[in-house]
């Protein structure tokens, strides 16, 4: 199934801003992060469709996963 992955700040380096990838049923954000070789400690904020996401939740067709490293405040 198709999952949209949006990456921000330093996570874009060597990976790009936005990817649309085909993943097997049952994939979780944790699985996506592993697939993209993002070290878990670099994941500070994880959103699924703009809502707080969990690493182990089951994703559905067409979901958008947004991943941020530690970032600022303002």
């Amino acid at each position: 199934m198709q999952i949209k992955v949006r990456l921000f700040a330093t996570l874009r380096e060597g990976r790009g801003k936005e990817l649309s990838k085909d993943y097997p049923e049952g994939i979780s954000p944790g699985g996506v992060i592993q697939d993209l070789e993002i070290p878990e400690e670099e994941v500070a904020i994880l959103l699924v469709n703009g809502r707080d996401g969990r690493l182990d939740q089951v994703l559905e067709e067409g979901d958008t996963v947004s991943i941020f490293p530690p970032v600022g405040g303002g």
Partner: peptide, 23 residues
């Protein structure tokens, strides 16, 4: 600290644009 050691030095406060917008 990720925010004061990496996030703010690399992008300043402007990095919040995408975060707040994604939410």
């Amino acid at each position: 600290n990720g925010v004061t050691g990496q996030g703010l030095p690399a992008y300043g406060t402007a990095v919040l644009v995408n975060i707040i917008n994604e939410n």
